[in-house]
Computed example of a mutant assay.
Amino acid sequence: MTEGEKSRLVAWADELRSVHARLRNALAVTQEALASGAPAQAASRELLLFCHGFCVALTEHHEGEDRQLFPAIGEAHPELRDVLRKLEQDHSMIAHLIGQLQAAASSSEPRETLARHLEGIAAIMESHFRYEERQLLVVLQSLSLDIEPSRVLGPL
């Protein structure tokens, strides 16, 4: 294996950690926008702006994993198929929670309601990210998938 091939393989694990860090940061910025103390209507508008960026990024990350990364891992590591199914179930649950948050923000729900939605997403997202990293980082260091990691996991 050449040094370039090894770097490309390790890039998958590094990229996953990097994307998770960016999504955690985007969620924190969204939560800070809500907690800013602005009037409820202004908070809802600001949350919609931040939520749109965060929600789209998280959704695209999960869709890329479901569409390209997980099938490649499942083929190379059939013993991980149950893990991949659980991660896909998490993706579905998070998508549902994001939909509820977007609906609540669009209908100008009270700040406390919006905060509860964000807390729920944060809790599931963090649990999901930690589980995914525990289960897949080592595998990602040896994954040979002929596509740039950022195209699957999300842009830098």
Rank of each mutant, 00 (worst) to 15 (best):
S36V: 12
S92W: 07
A42E: 14
R67D: 11
L156I: 05
M93I: 03
G64F: 04
G53P: 05
I98A: 02
H117Q: 14
L16Y: 06
T113S: 13
E132K: 10
E148K: 14
L47F: 01
A43S: 10
P149N: 09
E132V: 01
Q102C: 04
V152E: 05
H62P: 01
L9Y: 11
R130T: 09
H61C: 03
R151S: 13
P39K: 11
A35T: 04
C51Q: 01
E132S: 08
A42R: 15
L80T: 08
I121D: 00
S150A: 15
A11E: 08
E79L: 07
R130L: 10
R111E: 12
A43Q: 08
S127D: 05
H20A: 08
R8A: 05
L9G: 12
I94Y: 01
I73E: 00
G74H: 06
E133Q: 12
L49A: 13
T113H: 13
G64V: 01
D82T: 01
Q100L: 12
T2N: 14
E126K: 10
L49N: 13
I98D: 00
L156H: 13
Q68W: 11
A104W: 00
T30L: 07
K6A: 15
S144Q: 13
R67S: 11
E63I: 09
A72I: 02
E65Y: 06
T2I: 10
E126G: 08
V83P: 02
S127F: 09
L101I: 10
D90R: 05
P149E: 01
L9R: 15
R17G: 13
F50N: 05
G4N: 15
V10L: 15
R151P: 04
L27W: 00
A35V: 04
H61S: 04
T2P: 10
V83D: 09
E5M: 08
Q100V: 02
L87V: 02
G120N: 14
Q100W: 04
Q141S: 12
F54N: 03
L16R: 09
Q89T: 07
D66T: 03
V139K: 03
E63C: 11
S144N: 12
L9S: 14
S108R: 09
S36W: 12
L140R: 00
R22F: 06
Q135K: 15
R151L: 14
A11H: 03
L49P: 06
C51H: 04
V10K: 14
L153A: 07
S108K: 09
E65N: 01
A21R: 15
I73R: 05
Q41L: 14
E79V: 07
E75I: 02
K86R: 15
L97C: 07
D90P: 06
E133I: 06
L84T: 00
N25P: 12
Q102L: 06
A28K: 13
A122R: 07
F70V: 00
E60D: 11
V152H: 08
A123L: 07
A28W: 07
E119I: 00
H61E: 02
E112K: 12
E148S: 09
A42F: 09
A21W: 13
V152G: 03
R67G: 05
H61A: 04
D66C: 04
A123H: 03
A33G: 13
E3D: 14
V29S: 10
I94H: 00
P110M: 10
S44V: 00
